[in-house]
């Protein structure tokens, strides 16, 4: 969008210039709308699971802003000449079931014919204008908390390669379909300074976005980051999605790895996630309580994975 003038107004609390998880527009002193849209091609073979995952992924941006999703519209691209319509019904059913789990109502949608199947949602949520959580407010001393394990991109690549057992594929499917709702509700009670959700750029890519322009630096404790252990094995074998390599090339100048962090773990830290967990920056005094609240809400395995430092600015030190 570089070079294109985008008009704005005073009620745009979060707009394009911020490149955050969603746009936020103030309606009144006590209400702001969160708007976001996301859709993609199938990440799993089962249409019902794909529908759930695509919906959970689209809803996640509202949770990452600290909001409550309220309404949604379906976005569908479907190869109607080549594929049976029953597949589309299963996808939409998966999306609908996820929306009811989130307390969201479907109010419309749009479908087009396309050679490649795509599904997702445009979601609207509510938030108090003073309670909007963006990526850009890391405070030195904060602790970083992650609410889902990493490695889904690598494991999906191994599934595509026919090298992952079905039990693992299912475990990863369930994780991708899990809403970030409980994590969002749990963090609402704490002194959270910044939040985002971990998706296509991988943990380090999203952390790099948080640290850019923050005036702070980050220390990541690589061994404490929750990961699927199988993902490390697949990464060592080169079953790595191209996106992980792109993420690394794009951000490696901001990241300093300690020698003890081996290559497979580095790959997992850059692995693009589908519908990943929330990455939360919380005041140090409350980190323990937040983790306990997440655990009580069944958001596991959440973990404290790092801390925000006064400097060096815009750098991520991985130990």
């Amino acid at each position: 969008m570089c070079g294109i003038h985008i008009p704005t107004d005073e009620n745009v609390l979060v707009g394009l210039e911020r490149a955050d998880d969603a746009g936020v527009y103030r309606v009144s002193a006590t209400l702001a709308l969160i708007q976001t849209v996301d859709f993609f091609t199938p990440v799993v073979d089962d249409p019902y699971w794909f529908g759930q995952i695509a919906a959970a992924n689209a809803l996640s941006d509202v949770y990452a802003m600290g909001g409550v999703p309220k309404t949604a519209m379906n976005l569908v691209a479907f190869p109607v000449k080549e594929m049976d319509l029953s597949i589309l019904r299963r996808i939409i059913q998966g999306g609908l079931d996820k929306m009811s789990e989130a307390g969201v109502v479907l109010v419309g949608g749009h479908s087009i014919e396309d050679k490649e199947l795509k599904y997702g949602l445009a979601v609207t949520g509510f938030v108090h204008p003073d309670r909007v959580l963006t990526k850009k407010n890391l405070v030195p001393g904060d602790r970083l908390v992650l609410t889902k394990p990493l490695g889904t991109g690598i494991i999906n690549t191994a599934v595509k390669a026919g090298m992952a057992p079905p039990e693992l594929a299912e475990k990863v499917m369930r994780l991708m379909a899990a809403l970030n709702r409980k994590a969002c509700e749990a963090m609402a009670r704490f002194d959270v300074h910044a939040c985002t959700d971990v998706t296509g750029f991988g943990l380090l890519g999203h952390l790099a976005e948080m640290v850019s322009g923050s005036g702070a630096g980050v220390r990541l404790f690589a061994k404490q980051v929750p990961v699927f252990p199988e993902a490390l094995g697949y990464a060592a074998m080169g079953l790595i999605p191209a996106g992980a390599h792109k993420n690394r090339e794009f951000r490696e100048a901001m990241v300093a790895f300690h020698d003890a962090v081996d290559r497979p773990l580095r790959d997992v830290l850059f692995d693009p996630q589908t519908s990943g967990g929330l990455l939360i920056s919380v005041g140090a005094a409350q980190a323990g309580e937040l983790l306990k609240a997440l655990g009580d809400a069944g958001v596991a395995p959440s973990a404290e994975i790092g801390e925000v430092l006064p400097g060096p600015e815009e750098k991520i030190r991985v130990e």
Binding site: A235, A236, M237, G238, L239, I240, A242, H245, K246, R263
Partner: peptide
Amino acid sequence: DNAASQENVKRFLES
């Protein structure tokens, strides 16, 4: 024909 595949094949061979 791309750098990502080159990196992956390198890792596989090394493993």
